[in-house]
Design a protein around this nucleic acid. Structure first.
Lengths: 242, 242
DNA sequence: CCTATTATTGGCTAACAGCCACTATATAGC
DNA sequence: GCTATATAGTGGCTGTTAGCCAATAATAGG
């Protein structure tokens, strides 16, 4: 057996390429609301494998440019949307031997939310990226296991909507309670009772008033506008609708 | 520009070692209850880097043996405990350039629960692994960023305990409601009201009766014993204590 | 039998979701 | 103006469930 070596010496002679390691990628499910539908951003792959198929935006870690896994997600998203998204969080990590034809592959899946308009102009000019209504994604035969990843992210979105104020991130500020309720309903895929919804949100103190606005459809009583209060992102309801 | 190539040809000439990629590991925070304390399993590292420091059990993916990331976690855990743990789930993934002195590194963190006794005999015979009370982990200067990983897993444990019946997995079956309440309290790090606790658990229908047992301490009224019902693992409370 | 000890239940209050009818304030057409 | 209609917001009741805590049940040890 060899003599004891120091950690410094060990690190000097260590080369990761001496060992088999999986591919590592980051994929992002970016959601928005548009025309009363939940939509997800997909890109058409320009390279093998699965060239020409629709896929989630994502890619490899840049070991020089990215300090954190989170930075990789942020960077890939900025390449596609041109903006920093207001909410980006990890959903989970999927890794197995079959998901990528190149070999054992691990992907860290992130979920992001963005109001529709700010990114629309940019995305519309990118020929290989577009928003897809979540209901149509099933027909697209996505690359890799991205259909499953979309489902995972969508489930997380739904469950977090039940006990947080996540949906504020798909609205432009300020917004009305009616708009916010609509956002909750679309993200949860359920209808909510108006009084319960308003009571819950207002009592939580997660919104602050931001003037008056015109009602939906232009006619009717004017509406009070709100914006999220500081730290509203951390607020957790102790009880769930339903 | 090169001519268009087929996917088959692309895959044939693809070699992952042509690209820089991060180290990928799996780490597991295995928790149990012993002597009224929440404890976590740590191993003393026998190899560089951080040789001699305490760390979470874990390691590299075996690209031949492991079909899924989950299998890597299960395999590493079995090496240390000798048993299949009743609950093993992913907490999240941490990746950055500094956490491992060998370079850019990504680890998938899992959390696991196990009743104390079945593994004790095995673990006691492994000189490099032992249970540590969660409160003492802070003093140990764990390897890598494992102190943060322990905190992450502990937070997840606490929050999931609030709306599931997760704590059943740290008890041997059958158990009394008193024991189950004690488990909830230790995992949540809070005291619960007896009546509220019993009402909630019994109304949820997640337990089935399993005979009578002796009370804690040997004296007093005998207790009804329970075991988890089928699918109790999926049960979600719509309201949280507090 | 009496006491200490643990298990289990009763009964009340408070918070909050579900329900749904009612009020408030605007625009559009005349 | 006046009326119809549309959207925003409120009142008030019921049902569920957590918090509280005192009462009752069933055992062991003397």
């Amino acid at each position: 057996m060899s003599r004891e070596i120091t950690e410094a010496r060990f690190l000097k002679q260590y080369d990761p390429k001496d060992y088999d390691s999986p591919l590592v990628t980051v994929d992002i499910a970016l959601f928005t609301l548009h025309e009363s539908t939940l939509q997800v951003l997909l890109v058409e792959r320009g390279e093998h494998p699965h060239k020409g198929r629709w896929a989630l935006p994502g890619g490899f870690i840049d070991l020089q440019a990215d300090a954190e896994l989170h930075d990789t997600a942020q960077r890939k998203l900025r390449q596609k949307t041109g903006v920093d998204v207001p909410l980006l969080e990890q959903v989970g990590t999927v890794g197995n031997a079959q998901r990528d034809p190149r070999g054992w592959s691990v992907t860290a899946l992130y979920m992001a939310l963005v109001p529709h308009a700010p990114t629309a102009e940019f995305i519309d000019s990118v020929t290989d990226a577009r928003w897809w209504p979540i209901d149509e994604v099933g027909k697209l035969r996505l690359a890799f296991d991205h259909a499953e990843l979309v489902d995972l992210a969508r489930e997380r979105l739904k469950s977090k909507t039940a006990y947080t104020v996540l949906p504020v991130h798909v609205l432009r500020q300020p917004f009305s309670l009616t708009q916010l309720q609509r956002a909750f309903e679309l993200l949860m895929d359920a209808t909510l009772e108006k009084k319960s919804f308003r009571r819950r949100i207002l009592n939580a103190g997660v919104l602050e008033e931001a003037g008056e606005g015109v009602p939906e459809g232009g006619r009717g009583r004017p509406t009070v506008l709100y914006r999220p209060a500081k730290n509203s992102g951390q607020y957790l309801f102790t009880r769930v609708f339903g």
